[in-house]
């Protein structure tokens, strides 16, 4: 059991973390560094009544130590996601549920829904420079949303009968009925195109990495069981 959980979480987490970091360097980090030009005031979207600004990001190669940190922390986070997912595999396995690569993909997509898509519905991935509600309050809502969504999906997947589906759907809806913490003013200085692209690409990268985590985690799990 410990070997199965460890192998599944470690190898799948490492692979997903590296994939997430590479995709972030390609698609997300350039937008992030471009946004910092607006955050620092080096570039402005509104100047002298004129709306518009040049597009273009600083080159990635200027900050290699910073990107090494991004790679390292992605690996840490994705091994963490992998451990929690493998613990879920083990619980399901005890109930007689078979885990393999295909089932693992479904688990990965559920992980994407719970840890990326649902919290982003209330708190979209933030472009640097975004002024938002107090971070501890946002973290609390984020954590609540993730737990409620994961629990709701689990009820829908493993509960028997329509009552469990209704209860699961209620849990999925609860964080959004309560509502994420937001300010009553907008402060954005960066171009809105940049913020939109940043949020959707962050979600897309998460989806790809969760899919890999699930497929690979499930595949390793089934091999270790054999």
């Amino acid at each position: 059991m410990i070997r199965q959980i460890g192998a599944s979480a470690l190898f799948a987490g490492l692979a997903a973390g590296v994939l997430a970091a590479l995709l972030q360097f390609w698609f997300v980090v350039p937008l992030l560094m471009e946004a910092e030009l607006y955050e620092s005031g080096a570039r402005a979207h509104f100047t002298d009544g004129y709306i518009g600004s040049d597009a273009g990001a600083p080159p990635l190669g200027d900050a290699l130590a910073r990107h090494a940190g991004t790679l390292a922390m992605n690996v840490v986070a994705w091994i963490g996601f992998g451990l929690v997912m493998a613990a879920g595999f083990a619980l399901a396995h005890r109930q007689g549920v078979r885990i393999d690569a295909r089932r693992g993909l479904v688990w990965g997509l559920a992980g994407f829904a719970a840890l990326a898509l649902a919290p982003a519905f209330g708190l979209p991935p933030e472009l640097p420079g975004t002024i938002a509600a107090e971070v501890s309050v946002r973290q609390a809502w984020w954590g609540f949303c993730v737990i409620a969504t994961a629990a709701g999906l689990a009820l829908m997947a493993f509960g028997r009968g329509p009552a469990w589906l209704v209860a699961g759907a209620a849990l999925l809806a609860a964080p959004h009925v309560i509502g994420a913490p937001h300010l009553d003013r907008y402060f954005g200085t960066a171009a809105p195109e940049l913020a939109a692209l940043f949020s959707t690409r962050a979600l897309g990268v998460s989806a790809a990495a969760w899919a890999l985590l699930g497929v690979m985690g499930g595949w390793i799990w089934s091999r270790e069981a054999a």
């Binding site: 997430a20 970091a21 972030q24 997300v28 980090v29 992030l32 910073r66 990107h67 940190g69 991004t70 390292a72 922390m73 992605n74 840490v76 986070a77 963490g80 990326a116 919290p119 982003a120 708190l123 979209p124 991935p125 933030e126 472009l127 640097p128 938002a132 971070v135 946002r138 973290q139 984020w142 962050a202 979600l203 990268v205 998460s206």
Partner: peptide, 23 residues
């Protein structure tokens, strides 16, 4: 990786947090 507000932790994890959607 996602939540600790300790200074060094926050700095090294900054970009991955933004890109993963952590507050």
């Amino acid at each position: 990786a996602g939540f600790s507000q300790a200074g060094a932790m926050h700095d090294v994890a900054h970009d991955s947090r933004h890109a993963t959607g952590f507050p």
